[in-house]
Amino acid sequence: MKIAVMQFPGTNCEFETLVAVKAVGMDGEYFRWNRPAGELSGFDGFVIPGGFSYQDRVRAGAIASKEPVMSALKEEAAKGKPIIGICNGFQILVESGLLPVSGNVDMALAQNVMVSKGKIVRRGYYCDWVNLRHEAPSRRCSGSFIIERAALLKIPIAHGEGNLVTTTPGLIKKLNEEGQVVFRYCDKHGRVISEFPVNVNGSTESIAGLSNPEGNILGMMPHPERAFFAWQLPSFDPRKQRPDEPGPGRRVFESMKRYIEVNA
């Protein structure tokens, strides 16, 4: 089971992402953007990690989305292979038209706008630990395959452009109805509150992660690789004192592994 961890100029989370891939028992390697794209067919799954590909020039993910490896990834995705895009990886998937529906750019991840009590209180880059509620049924999406519906995960975010906006009529309704909304920002009790600080970036309907209709592609703004081990958790979380325990982000990578096993 071999996973390609994609590396574009400016990607900066590939090392911890590969650690996470290997720690759940998958094999993996970095796949640089300028390698022959055809070599992607030798992999069973793909992770596009976070960072600032091409320094976010033009807008986050825009330049990387035009690289030949992304065309090759589309072909691999069409075979049902799993792809997980994390943070900048999610932005690249959206700009490539791989999410939320293959073919068109149906949405944007715009600059964060934090709203509280009807007023804008912050804008732009923000990092914090957030709570996510798993919205999809288990087995619906490759990156949350083993996660039960309504499970809560504490995972960090760090981004300036994660605010889902769309002018596509009916898109959000369709995503909800077809189970493509995988994660929403919520409070520690699982309540989805549309305002900051629970909705950390102003995203439409507090959406933090999406899948494609087939479920093999997941894009999410939070970083599961940064909450893979319990020792990575913030000091106020009691699980940090039990460093041998898995962190909540581990389940995303375990899901990918299980998805590949089931669909092999």
């Binding site: 033009v58 807008r59 750019v105 149906d106 944007a108 715009a110 002018t167």
Partner: peptide
């Protein structure tokens, strides 16, 4: 094709 994302630009 490149300079805008029509959902925000």
């Amino acid at each position: 094709k490149l300079l805008i994302n029509p959902h925000k630009d």
